[in-house]
């Protein structure tokens, strides 16, 4: 067991994992609680944009798939709350912080989903970006977080593929369906790039998090990786990505791309996105509406104990 700072630094230096009962700096613990909680909240809030389409899915097949996907997001939230709880906080506490607006969730879920094609685009681009972010987190220095990420990444693969398959199906359909896909991609492209966070020059905590092995790559590295992976997928799908600056740079072996509108990210993160108020109101309502279920479960358990 790690008992002091020297032991902690030694574990980090050899790229090993810190486990819950090890000594760890306060800042490390606080950073992890904030990051894992934000991640958990994102999974839970992330059920809303797609959940809105469950009742309007165009076939039983698509409905079953969407239900299974939204159910996975709920499960991912639970894995992550459990990982956070190993750091000495309780799930109830974290939920309260979210409801009080004191902890955040991913900016991407503050965008609306007015079109059914958005279900496919979210699977392809939003879950694709999430996978880019999450695969390196399987090697994060905190054991319980890394193990949660391994489970989640396995399941995200289904999410991304069902989205891409949905879009491929629509692209084989009518002109109207093809333009629905393009319109949806146009709306989600830039917000997807913003999922990786502000540029490295404006991300003051990145260096500390990387030194601790919590993050393994910078925001800009992951954003570039996502662009490089996605462009050929867009070509195969037959859609264009709404960025006139996007072009292959043979010297770098990567795609050059335009600058996202960082003022938009700032606005969405600080509460002024298109759906922030709606998402939070929905979450509060769901939490309050669920109170009787939580009370009933406790009453049932007490009755069982006799």
């Amino acid at each position: 067991m790690v008992e002091d700072e020297a032991g902690f630094e030694a574990v980090i230096a050899r790229n090993d994992r810190i486990e819950p009962r090890d000594w760890m700096p306060d800042g490390y613990r606080k950073t992890l609680v904030r990051q894992i909680a934000q991640h958990a909240h994102s999974e839970v809030i992330g059920m809303q944009p797609e959940g809105a389409w469950i009742e309007r899915a165009p076939s039983l097949r698509r409905k079953a798939i969407l239900l299974a996907k939204v159910q996975d997001e709920a499960g991912h939230g639970l894995y992550l709350y459990s990982a956070a709880e190993t750091l000495g906080v309780s799930r109830a506490q974290l939920v309260e912080l979210l409801l009080a607006g004191k902890q955040k969730y991913s900016s991407i879920f503050n965008y609306p989903t007015p079109s059914y094609a958005d279900v496919g685009t979210i699977g392809w681009l939003v879950d694709g970006a999430a996978i880019c972010n999450q695969v390196p987190l399987c090697r994060t220095s905190y054991g319980p977080y890394g193990r949660a990420m391994i489970r989640i990444c396995k399941e995200e693969s289904f999410h991304q593929r069902q989205g891409y398959e949905l879009l491929m199906t629509m692209m084989r359909g009518t002109d109207e369906q093809r333009s629905m896909v393009q319109e949806s991609v146009n709306r989600f492209w830039w917000p997807s790039l913003m999922m990786f966070g502000p540029p490295d020059t404006e991300s003051p905590n990145t260096a500390r998090s990387m030194a601790w092995g919590i993050k393994r790559n910078t925001n800009d590295e992951l954003r570039q990786r996502f662009v490089d992976m996605t462009v050929p997928q867009a070509d195969a799908l037959g859609v264009t990505l709404p960025d006139p600056a996007l072009r292959w740079n043979a010297a770098r072996g990567s795609y050059d791309f335009g600058e996202p509108d960082w003022s938009e990210l700032k606005a969405v993160v600080s509460g002024d996105g298109p759906c922030n108020a709606e998402r939070m109101a929905h979450r509060r309502r769901a939490h309050e509406d669920g109170a009787w279920v939580r009370a009933a479960a406790v009453a049932h358990a007490e009755a069982d104990r006799g």
Binding site: R61, A64, I65, A68, D72, S157, F158, Q160, R161, Q162, Y164, E165, M168, M229, T230, P232, Q233, A236, L237
Partner: peptide, 19 residues
């Protein structure tokens, strides 16, 4: 009977990379 929970349920052409 929920085979659609598995990524292999969805056929993606071989020439689509990183999927």
């Amino acid at each position: 009977d929920k085979v659609f929970r598995h990524p292999t349920f969805y056929s993606i052409p071989d020439d689509v990379p990183h999927m």
